[in-house]
Design a protein around this nucleic acid. Structure first.
Lengths: 355, 355
DNA sequence: CTGAAAGCGCTTACAG
DNA sequence: CTGAAAGCGCTTACAG
């Protein structure tokens, strides 16, 4: 809206301040403006640089990232595809990825595949046409892509184990699940149900293996198991099914927080006391797990480390070869397993004012 | 990685399939490829178009969005700035905005200002340099920007009232709050506390006005009030403060879901029964409000309508003038106010398998 | 209906 | 230390 042009060049770009405007005002060539903006590749006399900076300031010059991307062949943009952008786990993961990327001057473009392979395919195409420098995939279909087909470095960011020739990042899910289920057993629970989703990675899910390992190690019979979507509704339906099916159920491990939260609602509705009648624990450890009722004992994924690792893998020159980065989960004990709950974990809240 | 060039042009863009490769293979000029890709502005004989499409398919051609953006002066990208990208309200709002934008072929670039004015400023600059076609702002600082300064159409997307010369979208917060508080009163509650944050829009917040209106209309004395951040922790601290302060408290209205969820935890911890002892309601109506315990009665914001409206405002040619789009909230009755709760609202969950 | 050519705003080898 | 010029991959008036 600023300058002119609107009328006489209707089909052309809206005229804005460009590097040659700055060059003219500063009395230098446009190359010098580039050298100042990018701090290289040629040195610029401090006096000249200062004139250039003043001109930029005065004109409100903002470099055009499209032009730079076209010229350099790099957009400093990363594509991220997830299957459910409303799941708090992915929300927090995305937040950490954006933070880690921003620290390196990169933006993230997010696509939600809605768990659909065709939607995902069109998103990949869209992101590729926007020339992303790399791709972060958290979809069940991700492993089907061949890195070469995509043409850009690609990291599978929610993958529980290495794949030859691929870059993958994920939590030590089997060990984490085993630890939290063993903790349930340590509270004297003997009939620990499993609520699990279909991760699409080929069976069985490491969380299921971990659950089974813990029970077998304790000499307990595994079961019962219900398979439902990774959603609150899934967990809600699952808990009801489990309750109906097994009168001896005294604990329940859910494969993600969302399912546990749905299960909690079903248990609360039926008047089943948690943890007295049925103890509950889950995998993920999002913020929601801390504020459910009762607060959930969880195997917490370290999203900051996972995110930093994912971004790093993308940037490494060796990203042509396969690698897997595995991060341990952390057992967080809250009230839902029978441990005392010490209140909220971030107590530093100021009342702005109270009347 | 695909073709060649890696060695001999290290400083240049990675060589990829370009429109002239397609043109060569199809035996046409590159202009014709453009006409086919864009379906205009010149007509192309069907036979020729078919040859071109086959060539694109064969080469795996993907148009370079940076080049197109540079030439056209439009990136088909919208910038979105929010103050807390982890708040489920903004998560869902973002989801709807992305959906509405995608339906029009636009991508959204998200920035989280972390409630900081300086962070926000640098994000705006970053987005502007990436040549966004428009800006969606949900920050408290948004109204300080002058539309002309930014140079691109800008919509304030969480703003409870019009501002001359600006484009704004928001829920009818005062009426919505009044309705839900009146509903609390209709359950016989006489001492309805308010948990509210600082929205930064200048006082008083419309939700506070709505709360007050409802009480005054019922002949009740307004109060008590606690001001805390718009967070779970804020609500947790607020509920404790309210309980300590007013033994007659029998209901509580929170200005967002997060605060209500924090408050619920505090009430549950203290053994205060909801809704028997203290009824609770909140403003927002995110998915989390449905799965808290007990489920929350809310004034629900219609995020799909808000989002569609925001995108529309951005695109309208008249976006040079000010306009305000206001959407009503919907009263959703759940258990926390004393109404019966009919179970989960999305009962269509399939057990994938139950053993 | 199709082609040759200019130009969007940058970056960077190449000369001075 | 600085400048003139080519070229990134597109789009689109302008000619044919």
């Amino acid at each position: 809206m600023a300058t002119s042009g609107e009328g006489d060049m209707p089909t052309q770009a809206r005229r804005s301040v460009t590097r040659s405007d700055v060059a003219r005002l500063a009395g230098v060539s446009s190359a010098v403006v580039s050298y100042v903006v990018n701090d290289g590749p040629r040195p610029v006399a401090e006096k000249t640089a200062k004139r250039v900076r003043e001109a930029m300031e005065k004109l409100g010059y903002v470099p055009n990232a499209s032009a730079r991307a076209l010229r350099r062949g790099k957009t400093e943009t990363i594509g991220l595809i997830i299957g459910d952008s409303l799941n708090p786990f992915f929300v927090q993961y995305t937040f950490e990825l954006v933070t880690a990327a921003a620290a390196r001057g990169k933006q993230i473009l997010i696509g939600d595949s809605r768990q659909s392979k065709t939607v995902e395919k069109s998103i990949v195409e869209e992101l590729l046409s926007r020339q992303v420098d790399g791709l972060l995939l958290a979809s069940p279909f991700a492993r089907h892509y061949n890195a070469d087909v995509l043409g850009v470095p690609t990291v599978l960011i929610d993958y529980p184990g290495g794949i030859p020739g691929r870059l993958t990042v994920g939590s030590a899910a089997e060990a984490g699940a085993e630890e939290v289920v063993a903790h349930l057993v340590s509270h004297g629970r003997t009939r620990v149900g499993l609520v699990i989703g279909d991760h699409g990675f080929g069976n069985p899910d490491p969380r299921e293996r971990g659950w089974r390992n813990a029970l077998v190690a304790a000499g307990l019979a595994p079961g019962p198991v219900v398979r439902v979507p990774f959603s609150r509704e899934g967990g809600y339906a699952a808990a009801k099914a489990l309750l109906d099916e097994d009168p001896n159920l005294d604990a329940l491990f859910a494969s993600n927080d969302l399912q546990a939260i749905g299960a909690l609602r079903a248990l609360n509705e039926r008047g089943v006391r948690v943890p007295e009648d049925v103890a509950v624990a889950s995998f993920d450890g999002t913020k929601e797990s801390e504020f459910s009722w009762p607060p959930l004992t969880v195997a917490k994924q370290q999203l900051d480390l996972l995110a930093a690792g994912a971004i790093r893998l993308l940037e490494e020159p060796s990203s042509a070869m396969g690698r897997h980065l595995q991060i341990d989960t952390i057992l967080v004990r809250r009230a839902s397993c029978g441990c005392d709950d010490g209140g909220v974990e971030h107590p530093s809240v100021d009342l702005i004012a109270a009347i």
